[in-house]
Simulated scan of single mutants.
Amino acid sequence: MQELRLLDPNGYTVPDTVTTVSDGAADEIRQHLLTEVAPAHAAEWSDFGYKARNYRIA
């Protein structure tokens, strides 16, 4: 089991993105967080210069 979390450009955990997954599902969840959740969160904070490409998974 792995714990994944999406981090914003400042290194803070994006709310509601801490997920515990099996090793087999980790790649799918990473992809979802980076391609769907990160762009949505960055759009909310775009006035502050947030860009989805600057998010990462920890």
Rank of each mutant, 00 (worst) to 15 (best):
P9N: 02
R30W: 08
R5F: 01
M1C: 06
V14T: 08
N10Q: 12
H41K: 09
D23H: 08
V14W: 04
R30A: 04
G11Q: 04
Q2A: 15
R56Y: 12
E44P: 04
I57P: 01
R56N: 09
R56V: 10
D8S: 00
T13F: 01
T19K: 12
A42W: 00
A26T: 04
E28K: 10
G49A: 06
A58D: 15
W45H: 15
R56I: 07
N10V: 09
E44D: 12
V21D: 03
F48W: 12
E36V: 12
D23R: 13
L33C: 03
A40M: 05
Q2M: 12
T20N: 09
G49E: 03
S22L: 11
L34Q: 00
Q31G: 10
V37T: 09
T17F: 02
N10I: 09
A40K: 08
N54R: 09
H32M: 14
G24Q: 11
D8C: 15
I29D: 05
A52V: 03
E28Y: 11
H32T: 13
P9V: 00
I57W: 01
A25F: 11
I29W: 05
D47G: 12
A42D: 02
R30M: 11
S46G: 05
V37A: 03
T17W: 02
G24C: 06
T13L: 05
A40V: 07
Q31Y: 13
R5D: 07
Y55R: 07
R30E: 14
A42Y: 04
Y55I: 01
R53S: 15
R30G: 06
V37P: 01
G24H: 09
F48S: 09
A43T: 08
D47W: 10
G24E: 13
E36T: 13
N10P: 03
R56E: 08
V18I: 13
T17P: 00
T13E: 14
P9S: 04
A42F: 00
N10H: 08
L4Q: 10
F48M: 12
Y12A: 15
V21A: 05
G49K: 01
T20H: 11
T13I: 15
A25Q: 11
Y50Q: 08
M1L: 10
W45I: 02
E36R: 12
N10D: 11
A25E: 10
I29F: 05
G24M: 10
A43K: 11
